[in-house]
């Protein structure tokens, strides 16, 4: 597959939320003074009556959204992954997940994508934190087209959803007419030797790694596990049955993220080994995105090496 130069997935969120808001007056955006960077500016312009800006007060923003949801609104609390997953985590638990309210937490700046911002702005623990809360659905789309589709799917689904977007451009992977279902992995390629499971901004890396592996003679299945909760158990069971090992690749700490979610299932089902490629339980820093990934072994070579070790 020839990967075309792409766009940040936060841009896709910005487009999707306007389309949703125009179609449904109950769609609200709750901003926390980073609407400009999270791409809600067009929403504010076109739909001011469906917009609230609580200022730099994320915990309150989450609570306001919960109150709106009890009155039939579908609020998207919009901020960065670091703040949306940690500053307001207990508010999400108490006022959104426990009462199972229809609130969406929409976060840009996922993983290492805000590379030069440094560690304070790199949300590398978010998916794992949110995954542990009952009633929460957790989604990390990989490109522009899938983000638009999954934001819309989140709006149609009743219940709490956490969505993670990229600050920086990621390649286009899907066509605009591709369909996506929450909780259902996408198989980009089928194969017999190894299964690569990835999501978010590093899925494109896996597309390239697969090509490399095929050249080396491996038959590679590639899954886009855009929803890490609920995880697509069936897709993992098939991978165990049909291929000889699983390598997960994520722009997230290897603790409790995609690799852990996949391993949860593999540990129960048995029959295959897993290698987790991800952030090695350490903080990032201000550096180019590729450098940050490389420091954690999240590279084409790293993936090839893991596959060789796993299946020979």
């Amino acid at each position: 597959m020839e990967l075309k130069k792409g766009l940040p997935t936060r841009d896709a969120y910005g487009e999707a939320i306007v389309e949703l808001g125009l179609a449904n007056p109950n769609i609200y955006v709750v901003d926390c003074d980073i609407g400009k960077s999270c791409k809600t500016v067009e929403f504010i312009k076109q739909l001011p009556d469906q917009h609230i800006n609580v200022g730099i007060a994320e915990q309150n923003g989450c609570g306001v959204a919960a109150g709106l949801a009890t009155c039939g609104k579908i609020p998207f609390v919009t901020t960065y992954a670091v703040f949306g997953s940690m500053r307001m985590l207990e508010q999400i638990r108490q006022e959104v997940c426990y009462p199972n309210l229809n609130v969406k937490i929409a976060c840009s700046h996922g993983g290492f994508t805000p590379a030069n911002d440094g560690a304070s702005h790199q949300g590398i623990e978010d998916l794992g934190l949110l995954r542990t809360i009952p009633n929460m659905t957790v989604i990390a789309p990989a490109d522009f087209a899938s983000t638009k589709k999954l934001v819309k799917a989140a709006a149609e689904y009743y219940g709490p959803v956490y969505l993670r977007f990229t600050r920086d451009a990621v390649p286009f992977i899907y066509e605009a007419d591709e369909t996506f279902e929450i909780g259902k992995a996408k198989m980009l390629y089928d194969g017999k030797d190894i299964t690569l499971i990835s999501n978010g901004d590093v899925l494109s890396l896996c597309v390239r790694a697969r090509e490399e592996l095929e050249k080396l003679g491996y038959s590679v299945r590639l899954l886009d596990m855009h929803t890490i909760k609920p995880i697509d158990r069936e897709a993992i069971e098939s991978a165990i049955a049909d291929t000889r090992g699983i390598v997960t690749v994520e722009d997230h700490t290897i603790l409790n993220g995609l690799g852990s979610a996949v391993s949860d299932i593999v540990a129960e089902v048995g029959g295959c080994r897993v290698r987790r490629i991800g952030i090695q339980d350490q903080f990032g820093e201000s550096a180019p995105y590729e450098r940050l990934l490389a420091k954690n072994g999240i590279t084409l070579e790293g993936i090839v090496k893991a596959v060789k070790e796993l299946v020979g």
Binding site: G63, G67, A69, E90
Partner: peptide, 30 residues
């Protein structure tokens, strides 16, 4: 208080400091 179990409870609370934000959300919606 658990709004999902008890009729008449408009929002679940118990973690202090959070209820007022939800009241603000309800008032904005109104």
């Amino acid at each position: 208080p658990d709004m999902k179990r008890c009729p008449g409870v408009d929002i679940s609370t118990g973690s202090l400091g959070q209820g007022l934000s939800t009241a603000v959300g309800m008032a904005i919606a109104g």
